[in-house]
Amino acid sequence: MATSPAAAERLLNLVIALVNTPVRMTKEQVRSTVAGYGDAPSDESFERMFERDKDMLRELGVPVLTITDAGHGDDFGYRIDLDTYALAPIDLTAAELGVLTMAAELWQDRSLRADSTRALTKLRAVGQAPGSTDLVAGLSPRVRDGGGAFAPLVDAVQARQAVRFTYRAATTGEVRERVVEPWKLLARRGGWVLVARDRDRGATRSFRLSRIEGSVRTVGPAGAFETPTPEELADALSSWDSGTRGVATLAVLPDRASALRARDVDGPRPTVAGRDVLRVPFRADWELAEEVVGYGDAVLVLEPTPVREAVLSLLRRAAALDDDGGTAHDVEAAEVSRG
C-alpha cells in the first residue's frame, strides 16, 4: 500500500496526464514523461509500480481505459475517459451531507468504512457547505464487522461471478469447500449473511460470513450467472425477514417479567393458578423460547405448542446439566434451531 506523499503526487500526475492526453499514452510515454515514474530503478520496478497504480485508480472508481491502436495491434496505451469519470450531476445541502456523514459512520467493518469514507470525500466536492452534525445528534447506528470475506463478496455479487470458500456448517460442525453464485449480502439480527445459489446442491443457501474460514476466491469469469428473479430472491430472503409470526399465551408470576408485560396485547385476562395471563406477539418460535426460558419458573408458555415444547426441551436438557459434574451428553438436536 502506497503511503508516501510521493505516491499521492505520482497518482495525481498520472490522472492529470491520462485525462489530458489527446488519444492515449503508452507505458513508455508514462515512464518517460509523467513525474514520479522516471525514478523507477529498473524496467521491472516500473512495471510493478505502474500496474499497482493503475489497479489502485480503477479501485477508486477512476476509469482507466486500455486503448489499442488499430494499425498496430500489439501496441496499446491508456486514457481516462472524462465522461465515465464524472459523477452524475448531484447537489447536496449541508443537512444532506450531514446525514451522509452519519451514514458513513454506520459501518464498523473496516473495508466498508474505507469505502464509505472515500464516497464521502468525493461527495464533499459537490456538497454545499460543511456538513452539519446537529441534525443527527445523539443517534449512533452501528453495523458489526463483516470480516475479510465481505469486500470480495460484494465485488462478486456486483460482477455476477461465482466464488469458492471454506465453510463451517453450524448444524453439523462439518467444514467443507463451497462453490456458490452470490446474490446478496444481508445484515440481520446477529450478523452478516450471504444468500447464494450453492452450485453443488443446486439450491439457494444462506451462509453466515462469520463461519467462512480463510479467504474467498473467485471462480470463472464475471457475468457467469443471471441475477435472480425478484421471486427467487424474495423466496431466499423470506426466512431472514422478520415479521410477526404469531401471538403466544404466557402465564406469568405476579410482579415478574415486566419486559414481557410491556408487550402484552389486548389484556387484561383472568388469572390461571395465581398467574397473570399475557398475550405476547413473537417473530420466531426459537426466539421467544430462548427469551422465555431465561425467566425459569416465573414465565410458562401455554400456547402455541411448538414454543411450549421448545422451552420444555431446553429445560429438560438444562435440568440434567449437573447430573455428572457439569457434563451433559450431546443428543440429536430436537430443539428448534436458531437461524
Partner: peptide, 16 residues
C-alpha cells in the same frame, strides 16, 4: 481539466 467530480466506485455507492 480536472473540474469534474469523480463518480463513486461500485462498492462506495453500495456502502452509502
Amino acid at each position: 481539466g480536472m473540474t469534474r467530480p469523480l463518480r463513486l466506485g461500485a462498492r462506495e455507492a453500495v456502502s452509502l
